[in-house]
Simulated scan of single mutants.
Amino acid sequence: MRESLKKLRDPILIQAVIAAALSFSHIHDIADAAGQREWKAWAYPISVDLLMVMAWKMIRTDAKQRGAWFWFGLSLSASLGANVATAGVLDLGNLPVWLRVLVAGWPAVAFLGGAFMVHAQSKQKPAVEDLVDDVEEDQEPDEVEEPEPEEDELVTVAEAHARTGVNIRTARTWVWRGQLPVKGMRGRANLVSLRDVKERMTVGA
């Protein structure tokens, strides 16, 4: 509630409400003077303002939309023209024929503008969805290739010393204690896994 009251105190919002009310009233007066009586006279300012809001919303989404700029300018001209016309420039009791024709034809024009912008927005949505999909694909983490396991090889203690630098006496102690399992025999020499020797070296004696 307090936030709503704060918004009502905003001078920009107050100014916008006053301007909208005056413009709304002027368009109504022109429509009424052009022969559009009762509810029809009130429908005209709603139509003009809605077309302007739709066009402005579309411009904010994509400023390159020339059609949206055209309909925004047209609705703004209609609102501005009504404001000027009710300032004593025209006799509201005897409007010129051309102005009556414009007022009578406005509903068709407004419908055309609204249909155009709705169609343009529906064409934009797939492009936006494709862009979102592309962004999501770019954000997906790259698959990390796991290194292929090193091929194991059976070697003698002396060969393990030559390949890895392990101390021969230390390696034989590991074998004797069962800390380095014997995987085979080559003559009288024990064969151990080269991978086991490397792993054991990282652990220590």
Rank of each mutant, 00 (worst) to 15 (best):
residue 3 E to C: 09
residue 7 K to H: 06
residue 10 D to A: 10
residue 12 I to D: 04
residue 14 I to Q: 15
residue 16 A to D: 05
residue 18 I to K: 07
residue 20 A to G: 04
residue 22 L to Q: 08
residue 23 S to F: 04
residue 28 H to C: 05
residue 31 A to W: 11
residue 34 A to Y: 10
residue 35 G to E: 04
residue 36 Q to W: 13
residue 53 V to L: 12
residue 56 W to L: 14
residue 56 W to I: 02
residue 57 K to T: 08
residue 58 M to Y: 07
residue 58 M to V: 10
residue 60 R to P: 00
residue 62 D to L: 05
residue 72 F to P: 00
residue 77 S to Y: 12
residue 78 A to E: 13
residue 81 G to K: 09
residue 81 G to L: 10
residue 85 A to P: 05
residue 87 A to P: 01
residue 92 L to Y: 06
residue 97 V to D: 07
residue 98 W to M: 07
residue 101 V to C: 05
residue 102 L to E: 07
residue 103 V to C: 03
residue 111 F to L: 15
residue 112 L to S: 09
residue 116 F to E: 12
residue 117 M to G: 01
residue 117 M to R: 09
residue 118 V to P: 06
residue 121 Q to L: 15
residue 124 Q to T: 14
residue 125 K to I: 15
residue 127 A to D: 07
residue 138 D to G: 09
residue 139 Q to Y: 13
residue 139 Q to A: 11
residue 139 Q to H: 09
residue 145 E to Q: 12
residue 146 E to D: 12
residue 146 E to V: 14
residue 148 E to V: 15
residue 155 V to E: 08
residue 156 T to H: 08
residue 158 A to I: 09
residue 163 R to W: 07
residue 173 T to C: 00
residue 174 W to P: 02
residue 175 V to N: 09
residue 177 R to D: 11
residue 179 Q to Y: 09
residue 181 P to S: 07
residue 183 K to G: 01
residue 189 A to I: 03
residue 189 A to L: 11
residue 189 A to T: 03
residue 189 A to Q: 14
residue 191 L to C: 04
residue 192 V to Q: 05
residue 196 D to S: 02
residue 197 V to E: 10
residue 204 G to N: 01
residue 205 A to D: 15
